[in-house]
Nucleic acid binder design. Structure first.
Length: 442
RNA sequence: GGUCCCGUAGCCAAGUGGCUAAGGCAUUUGACUGCAACUCAAUGAUCACCGGUUCAAAUCCGGUCGGGACCUCCA
């Protein structure tokens, strides 16, 4: 399996650090608001990455943090008139709920900054001891110039970054690029630390959490491409400084989602919240939309595009329903037969840096074969193998279609419908059909 | 100023050196059908432009034009 590594800017063959295990860490949100549909892209994409490793039989440990201590959370308290912990709780819960409604598997570990203050403080202390960080008027900063490789992940040189000219002036810093590990003078909740009351800086939490949860490098560290710099660069810098090693073998960054050709951002006010989208559209349809473009490419979200994937999803749904019905009527389910060609297609696409667009093409052709086989009254062995293959696709893509086997009375009803049609008793047939539709059977 | 990405049919989108450039939507046509829905089949590309390398380029190199990202909180 090849994965594109942002650190090396090339495809690399995936080799787990520990045999048959995958350690994944994906940056989660700062919980000061509901997430929008662009925030959902990494939530869905890295879920698919994880699902594929699970499908391959890897033992996957998946951690994704929640940043629940942050200035933005404090600012939100002013709007909502509840305290920081309540804001954090409200939007943490909302995020986890949204992720679940998007059919993403819950993370194995969900570390929160509030639970990690002590470890973060200790992390900062160690960086000070090693000379990579310094105190300045109660703040603590990371000394970027001490680390020769700073800039490697983002492909930037320190001098170029400085000449970027939009770096804020801050007299407390030795160098404008130095980033904050601990913020002393701050409004809202503060925490005790040897260098003074304050709050952790943004970047340190992930490094400290990964150290704690995985006790070493992770195989894959993921997040949106806008986290590459400065967030991930700084996480990497801290780890290099403290342990002299990388934080992750492979760094993966997903592309952005635009809305009608504009960047979607809360400050522009052109966001669509996940929870609003899901009132109108099935989560499966949105997953298809997100996965229909290669993960590193941008997606331009429009209503037309969403409607298109709504239709595409409904085709998949109909095919599964009809196939399921056919197998159910004949009691023809069986676990161990697959359509090899479509499984091979799935694996080939996924092994090629998670080429989900081609997986979806495979899904579409599978759906077509199902339709043809159902019409052609192919034998049950073929139908069940197609069914099991479809289930594999749906699992990897995280499309959730739950169907229940019919009660015997429903089976009878179905047969009555078929019989009435055969006998040209169309009034009766239409009644049966109506009832079957109501019950969601056809 | 620095770093980087993209430009494939009306639309979405694979392919990144080698048979006739995947697939889907829309369009048009046909088949199936008691009606309806569904479904199936057929239907379109000088791969932004110019030049170069090569036996061979959408794919590599140079240039032109156009669009965009990051360097600042942001998935």
């Amino acid at each position: 399996m090849n994965i594109y590594n942002t650190l090396s800017n090339r495809l690399e063959e995936f080799k787990p650090i520990e045999k048959n295990k995958v350690r994944m860490y994906v940056c989660g949100p700062t919980v000061y608001n509901y997430i929008h549909i662009g925030n959902a892209r990494p939530v869905v994409f890295f879920d698919v990455v994880r699902r594929y490793f699970l499908y391959l039989g890897y033992d996957v440990k998946f951690a994704s943090n929640l940043t629940d201590v942050n200035d933005k959370i404090y600012l939100q308290t002013l709007k909502e008139n509840i305290d920081e912990l309540a804001i954090a709780k409200k939007y943490s819960d909302a995020f986890l709920e949204d992720a679940q409604n998007l059919n993403s598997l819950p993370a194995d570990v969900v570390p929160r900054v509030t639970e990690y203050i002590e470890k973060i403080v200790k992390y900062v202390e160690q960086l000070i001891e090693k000379g990579f960080a310094y105190e300045s008027d109660g703040d603590v900063y990371f000394r970027v110039t001490k680390l020769k490789e700073y800039g490697k992940l983002s492909g930037q040189k320190i001098d170029d970054l400085i000449s970027g000219a939009r770096v804020e002036l801050n007299e407390k810093k030795e160098n404008p690029l130095d980033f904050m590990l601990w913020k002393h003078n701050t409004e809202g909740n503060t925490y005790d630390a040897p260098f003074g009351d304050g709050r952790p800086g943004w970047h340190t939490e992930c490094s400290a959490m990964i150290d704690d949860i995985f006790a070493g490098e992770v195989d894959i560290h993921g997040g949106g491409s806008d986290l590459r710099f400065p967030h991930h660069e700084n996480e990497l810098a801290q780890t290099k400084a403290l342990h002299g090693r990388n934080l992750a073998r492979i760094w993966m960054h997903n592309g952005r989602l635009d809305l009608n050709d504009d960047k979607m951002s809360k400050s522009l006010g052109n966001t669509i919240l996940v929870r609003d989208l899901l009132k109108e559209y099935d989560a499966n349809a949105y997953r298809l939309l997100l996965l229909s473009t290669y993960y590193r490419s941008p997606i331009n979200y429009t209503t037309e595009l969403m409607d298109y994937f709504k239709n595409e999803y409904e085709k998949v749904l109909r095919a599964k329903k009809q196939l399921f019905l056919d197998l159910d009527l004949n009691d023809a389910f069986s676990d161990d037969v697959f359509d090899e060609a479509s499984i091979t297609e799935l694996e080939k696409a996924m092994n090629d840096d998670f080429n989900t667009p081609n997986v979806i093409t495979g899904l579409q052709s599978l759906v077509k074969r199902i339709n043809v086989s159902l019409r052609g009254k192919d034998n049950k062995d073929i139908l069940v193998s197609l069914y099991n293959s479809l289930e594999t696709y749906l699992y990897v893509l995280g499309l959730k279609i739950d169907l229940e086997r019919m009660e015997s009375s429903d089976k009878e009803l179905y047969l009555l419908w078929q019989g009435a049609r055969k006998n040209k008793e169309f009034d009766k047939a239409d009644e049966y059909r109506k009832e079957l539709v109501q019950k969601g059977i056809i």
